[in-house]
Write a protein that binds this DNA or RNA. Structure first.
Lengths: 187, 187, 187, 187
DNA sequence: AATGAATGAGAATTCATTCAT
DNA sequence: AATGAATGAATTCTCATTCAT
């Protein structure tokens, strides 16, 4: 196995793992450095501050979702149902593991009032999340209904992830996803 | 105005305000003591540790919901709709203010992996939350549907509260509550 | 020898010694704590920050000069010469030792641009220093001359202290003081 | 505009600006590198350590004063008064700007006790400063008086610079220079 | 010559907790 | 019950310095 090379992207990846698992305030720069095989001081070679690192983690997750998850909602070569199914599959691959959870929701709740900049970046993520879902529902529903269903779906997903984490049970998300998909059939 | 007397209940009340607003790790014992007009050392006369205090806050919130919110779900003197309406009104009075949020969800997400005891207590709260909603839906739906609708409702409420906090917008919760109530009519 | 009791005044005293000797940026909170027989964290029980401690040191030195040094300039029961002689004697007792130097000048020069608040407090000290000297010279000289001589004297004293420190030679200050005193005779 | 070439002399020049303005301990190698358009690691190609760099800055300033300022004191083609006037003009051009101050005095006071080598180099500068002034006063005064007046003048200049910095007021130095010049007339 | 990654020591500060009074 | 002093470990961040490329 080749030694992991340390660069900004790698640090962001390791940070993401820890931050999603442990929360923003419980994850120390030393934890992150340690996970990267660095000393804590060395992180400041890449990031000016813990906040900047967190910001880049948020942006990186947002990018990833945009390019690897939400994008499928706009793939006109597929049926609405296939598009939503793909989006859901990709989401689950990210959200579900030993910890369960969405770093955006978790960090958002934890820091919304203390670090408004994070809230603002996370809002942007959720808007894209809405839009993607809405774009699929638009195939079957009129604009206003699609809008409401999308908002509801995002809330349900985030709520399910919260319960999944607290109960350590992935079924919450899986059932929610099933419902969301069913809305394209009947609901 | 009578001087607030300092006792366990009062400290729990003040702690709750802070913990819900600021998260578990950002709220220090000094913050809490300060809010109670005490010095931080004095808190240890009432609680052995921050964890114990948090535990009692969780239990206290659970009790409050049981006696003041969930209880209405079982008031057979009212219609299912009235029962749910009351439960929702009471919930909103607790969940909505300048910060928006549910301390159970927030602390649950933040500490689920680090402090399993909290997760366990919070699970118990959410089970009672499920049961209360389910008991109302049972009036109109068969057991299995009521069950699923209740689970979904709790997820939606918690997801809506997360978005409410991140977007600083109370409409997420209000719309969700409306939907939940409508399920007793048609859905 | 009774164990030194630790209180704010004692910490300020120990800080003063170190800060005058080592400069603001070379004196760490750990150094100061150590000199007081405390751990560095314990200092924050008394002072919110290093800057606040420095501020209180400055104010304390200013107070000391006001009450123990400058005050003699205004003692109308003595001749102008005696008043200046006393003021000079008291000054020397403070300024001269193994290190030589005036914490006001030293910290002033070091931090004037970085921490404007210090500059402002130190200006106030130097204004009182001017005024005291001027009040003595007024006995022999007209207002405008007294004013100029006072300003010149303070500059000479501070310059002499700088040289005294750099050359580790107390004669600079002693000769300066002699000249300042002689101005009451002829100059 | 030709790109500044990076060589030892250029680094020393940039360091000087920063060190005079910010003090020795507040100026980091990164600050200096940055001002030179280099990365901090690169500085070590030119200087073994921060101390060596500071030493070379001190020597460079001393050289500059020797060749561009003090030298005028020995120009026998001019009157004593012209010589002193020139020396003063040159000094002011160096000492006065937005910050005001003499790097020799500032660094001397700041590091005298911690880094004796600096004190020693700075002493040498001040001896040349004395000698230059004394050489001019010798034109009018006997040796011992010239000696004393020179010492006094240097102290006054340094003290005035200290006050100029703390009060952010260039008049202190200008008035001092006037007095020093007047001593060649009457005093 | 120059870079940029890495170090390791040390800075200020915070905080849960203890304990004598 | 309450205080306030003290702790000690942890946290974020800085910085002079080294070194392979």
């Amino acid at each position: 196995m080749p030694k992991q090379k340390v660069d900004e992207a790698h640090i962001i990846k390791e940070s993401l793992k820890l931050l999603r698992q442990k929360s923003y305030h419980t994850t120390s720069m030393a934890d992150i450095a340690n996970a990267c095989g660095l000393l804590k001081g060395s992180l400041y070679h890449y990031f000016d501050s813990k906040e900047e690192l967190m910001r880049k983690v948020i942006l990186s997750v947002h990018d990833y979702f945009r390019n690897e998850v939400f994008v499928h909602a706009y793939d006109e070569s597929l049926s609405a149902e296939s598009r939503l199914q793909t989006l859901i599959n990709k989401s689950e691959a990210i959200f579900i593991d030993e910890e369960n959870g969405c770093i955006m929701g978790n960090v958002g709740v934890e820091t919304a009032l203390a670090i408004p900049e994070f809230a603002s970046l996370i809002q942007s993520f959720f808007r894209d999340f809405f839009d993607a879902i809405k774009n699929v529902y638009r195939d079957k529903y009129p604009e206003d209904i699609a809008d409401e269903l999308a908002e509801r779906s995002v809330a349900e997903v985030e709520g399910a992830l919260m319960l999944a984490r607290i109960f350590n049970d992935q079924q919450y998300l899986k059932k929610t996803h099933k419902r969301i998909l069913n809305r394209l059939k009947t609901d």
